[in-house]
Design a binder for these strands. Structure first.
Length: 353
DNA sequence: AAGTCGGGGTT
DNA sequence: AACCCAGACTT
């Protein structure tokens, strides 16, 4: 598509784009990979401190591959989509085993790694090695939808196909790295969802939505549907004296997979009998109270909290797999979902151990 | 092709 | 409070 699209973008980015993000400093495949995975469904501002901590602790593939899975999840804790962290860790070990620790350099090898799809594979190879591959993340989708006035929700298969064609057609033969950085930056800084700054946009002249004054019509929103409400009860079991809180590791798959969470009381069970059978703990019950509500992509969770007081011996739970007495500030290297962290923090605030 | 997976910023 | 974001994976 010889229409000056990429040239205009590259020129704009050279003059006004961002060049000082941490992953732009030393754009090795490893660093670009980590940044791209963290940036999946997550904004730059949120990722910044996580990226610095993560690459400081794990400066290369081998360091990550050698790491303990709990520590990886710990450094990810709060970012969300924890399958990304598990996949990153798995992929690092695969790179060490299959590729001798050297990041693969062909699209198929990269796209085969867990957690790396078509767009992220293209971004890694384009940004770190200048290989010509299109990308299609949220920013690029928005820019292309407006520029070409593409109708339909970008998440649908049909619209997605159309957008991939356009993305490939616009990707230049040379300066692919600069172009890739530029189109993402444009979407993140000028061609934003709410108030696009068309006055400063290098693509203004050819943009169909701008010509029609219909910027806000694109991209079309996801079809909405009502979120089902689910309820769950969490046991608040504090250890007498130390104030430590009992946490339980969740199964590897599903919501909060592999993270440490408050023990979940199954529906209908009597808490005291459950604690005796499940943990071997004798407890007395305090007044239950509502916890926070948490909204996921596909349902809303209303949490109930059941505080308890331990009556007898507490060492018994230490012998069980997947259980730990957790204390804020002790810096135990485990991952804890954000809403659970909020509960813990609140608890220590209202009744310090 | 549709559903699952978090958390936080924006409006 | 609703919507969305540097998506990928499973079914």
């Amino acid at each position: 598509m010889a229409d000056g699209f990429s040239a205009a973008l590259i020129g704009w980015h050279r003059r006004e784009g961002r060049h000082d993000l941490p992953w732009q400093r030393d754009p090795t495949p490893y660093r670009v990979w980590v940044s791209e995975v963290m940036l999946q469904q997550t904004r730059v501002g949120t990722v910044l401190p996580y990226f610095v901590r993560f690459t400081d602790r794990f400066p290369d593939v081998r360091a990550l591959a050698a790491a303990d899975s709990d520590e990886v999840l710990h450094l990810w804790s709060g970012l969300g989509y924890y399958a990304r962290a598990r996949n990153l860790h798995r992929a690092a070990r695969m790179i060490v085993e299959r590729h001798g620790g050297r990041f693969p350099e062909t699209f198929d090898e990269v796209a085969t790694l867990p957690g790396i799809g078509r767009s992220t594979a293209g971004a890694i190879l384009a940004l770190s090695m200048g290989q010509r591959h299109p990308i299609l993340d949220g920013n690029v989708k928005r820019v292309l939808c407006r520029y070409h006035a593409v109708t339909g929700w970008p998440g649908s298969a049909e619209t997605g196909r159309r957008l991939w064609e356009l993305a490939a057609a616009h990707t230049p033969e040379r300066e692919v790295s600069a172009y890739t950085q530029a189109i993402m930056d444009l979407g993140a800084t000028l061609c934003t969802r709410a108030r696009p700054d068309c006055d400063r946009c290098p693509l203004r002249e050819g943009c169909l939505a701008f010509r029609n004054g219909s910027q806000m019509q694109f991209p079309e929103p996801r079809p909405s549907r009502a979120l089902p409400l689910r309820r769950c009860r969490y046991a608040l079991i504090r250890r007498p004296g130390s104030g430590e809180l009992l946490l339980q590791r969740r199964p590897p798959a599903g919501v909060w997979g592999g993270l440490c969470c408050l023990p979940e009381l199954p529906d209908g069970v009597e808490p005291r009998a459950w604690c005796r059978e499940r943990f071997g703990l004798e407890v007395s019950l305090l007044e239950p109270r509502p916890g926070p509500a948490h909204t996921f992509t596909h349902f809303r969770l209303q949490m109930q909290l059941q505080p308890m007081e331990v009556r007898g011996e507490t060492d018994i739970v230490m012998e069980q797999e997947g259980l730990l007495w957790y204390k804020e500030g002790r810096r135990q290297a485990v991952g804890i979902p954000a809403p659970v962290r909020r509960i813990i923090r609140q608890l220590e605030l209202e009744s310090p151990p």
